[in-house]
Design a protein around this nucleic acid. Structure first.
Lengths: 358, 358
DNA sequence: CTGTTAGCGCATTCAC
DNA sequence: GTGAATGCGCTAACAG
């Protein structure tokens, strides 16, 4: 206060009260009782610390104790609503235990992920929440080799024993397909997620499984990234390849938005001509036009659980890795409706039922 | 690699090549040239470090050098689209300079802000991006007193000399009101932001200024928080108080969504009965129903600029604080249209022009 | 070209 | 009840 930008140390406080640093340290760390400090001295020290504006240096403490009270979290993109909600929930749990969050976005680039995770390990974060793991991920192996506790978010990885929390991709996908099936849709395509991620593969596999089980006509194609543009591109390709499709299942909501764009470009309306189902139930999905029918992933719960699992792992490093699955729920809104006849855009004959194509 | 969870130190590397720690340190920090190290030794050391999986300990380095390469950022809510986009842009700039981001959400609670910012100062973050500053903010004064470089995001504060980057609130609000005016709206209300923030006050003041200048009939009421529920509550109150209103200006997009809800509850349609203008142009605003007319704040630019300004301040701490304003732009979409006659829900007389009320 | 020395700020073991 | 000594892992000034 007196001099701007002067950071008093433990020693400064000690000197100001004519005591040893170690005594002050004990008092300021609440170990006064254990050290049987005289209550009077305790007050004197606390007052002095307050007066000097003593703050404590986490860096020095961390070096000494080995505990940084920091958790690293890496996600593809913090500006993504879905990820941001998970992150927020995780942060709240971590903060409850006194941890701070070192956060970074990879932009989907594994090279960034590697760089950022290495930086986190150098910073001695006590654990890592990894939300951009690939099916085969060597950075993940680096983390594991270093002994740093880690929990995967949204994904799993092959060939490694690691904790993870992810949505029930198979059940969620089945919900989506069955919903369309019940509405009378018989030709359905999936805009699948990137196939180097477990979620992308799981949702695609589940899609074809359900389609086969139900005896539907189904096709799929995977995007390279989870963006609206990619959703649009792949949906367009599928629309061209399968002209009589009436139902589109997207591997996530952003891809669903892209599919909506592809439909609009072709003069097809959603849901009148083609129904679309998303995945995640991102914030504002119900306010979109049309309100998006989607499979809800409980994002806050997911965030909470990854954080809790990581904290448990930090407390008990011997703990065997565990995978938790969070349940999904179909939310029916305005982007799906009973199937009409296929939109035969390439034929002159009017459709046998439903409204005419525009 | 050999032993799981063994973290080799500089000393381990040094021993493995029979050199002194300091020599290894120089080499691994790229100061080999300055130290005129024999290229052969350099290679030997680098190989040894690689082989041992040496990572370096940022904590120890930070204690020694005083540089943590960390920036703290506190926002009201990272799960908010607008803030998340700004954060992402800032993070990208900071990462370019080798900085990591320590991020936290206050939930709008000043007590959280205080706690989190103190933790950041204890962690010796080299600078702070503060996105939840109040008009009168004593945590901010603590930061300033400590000499930690700080830049306010979206807000300014009274009575303190501090750097800040914020949107042009007055100009943006004027854009919104004039747009409605040009569409023939004469009775306009503002759902104002919290009045303990500079942006809330600035937008409200600007609203009344423009209303007066244009000779319009205007009223406003402030929300407590930037949530849809608050927007709905306050919009409802204004609707009741000013029954012949045809235009609503919201201090941000979430409040606008709340206003939309309030209208729907009353059986009023947007834009046919009442036009609504938002502020920020959050992601997906164009996909909402109706697509939201709003004042765009260039979020990535804002994020970039706060980060750059902070980095400059860190490089040159003597630098005088500066405030930067980013320009706004009106984006006209579907939530505004020419005014119809006031919706006199409490009278039997038909409106003099326009369609009948539903 | 490389080694020696010192110390960043703190917590902890042991001494008295 | 409190003080002294030690070292976490690293970098930097100085020595040679």
């Amino acid at each position: 206060m007196t001099e701007p930008s002067f950071r008093p140390t433990l020693r400064d406080v000690a000197r100001s009260v004519n005591l040893h640093e170690s005594t002050v340290s004990r008092i300021l760390n609440g170990r006064a009782a254990a050290g049987r400090i005289r209550p009077e001295t305790e007050q004197r020290v606390k007052l002095a610390a307050e007066r000097l504006g003593y703050r404590g240096n986490t860096v020095a403490r961390a070096l000494r104790t080995g505990r940084t009270l920091m958790i690293g979290m890496v996600v593809p993109d913090i500006a993504n609503l879905y990820q941001a909600r998970i992150t927020r929930a995780a942060q709240d749990v971590l903060a409850g235990d006194g941890y701070s969050l070192l956060l970074s976005s990879t932009g989907g680039d594994p090279a960034n992920a590697r760089r950022q995770i290495r930086a986190m390990m150098s910073s001695r974060t006590e654990g890592i929440l990894y939300g951009d793991a690939r099916l085969h991920d060597d950075v993940l192996e680096e983390i594991l080799a270093s002994g740093t506790p880690v929990v995967l978010v949204n994904r799993v990885a092959e060939g490694v024993a690691v904790s993870a929390v992810h949505p029930d991709n198979a059940a969620g996908t089945e919900l989506a397909v069955r919903h369309l099936h019940e509405l009378g849709h018989r030709v359905i395509v999936q805009v699948s997620g990137p196939q180097d991620t477990s979620s992308g593969v799981a949702r695609r596999t589940a899609f074809h499984d359900v389609v086969d089980t139900l005896g539907l006509d189904g096709d799929s194609e995977a995007v390279d990234r989870h963006t609206e543009a990619e959703g649009r591109r792949v949906a367009a390709a599928l629309l061209d390849r399968v002209p009589d499709v009436t139902g589109v299942v997207a591997a996530n909501d952003r891809l669903a938005l892209g599919a909506l764009d592809a439909l609009a470009e072709r003069g097809l309306r959603c849901p009148e001509d083609v129904s679309v189902v998303g995945f995640n139930d991102m914030l504002y999905a119900e306010r979109l036009s049309p309100p998006l029918t989607t499979v809800r992933v409980p994002q806050r719960e997911l965030g909470r659980r990854v954080a809790e699992l990581l904290l448990e792992t930090i407390r008990d490093p011997g703990r065997a890795p565990s995978t938790q699955v969070v349940g999904c729920k179909l939310i029916v809104r305005g982007s799906t409706m009973p199937a009409r006849a296929p939109a035969r855009r390439d034929t002159a004959a009017p459709p046998p039922s439903g409204r005419a194509a525009p």
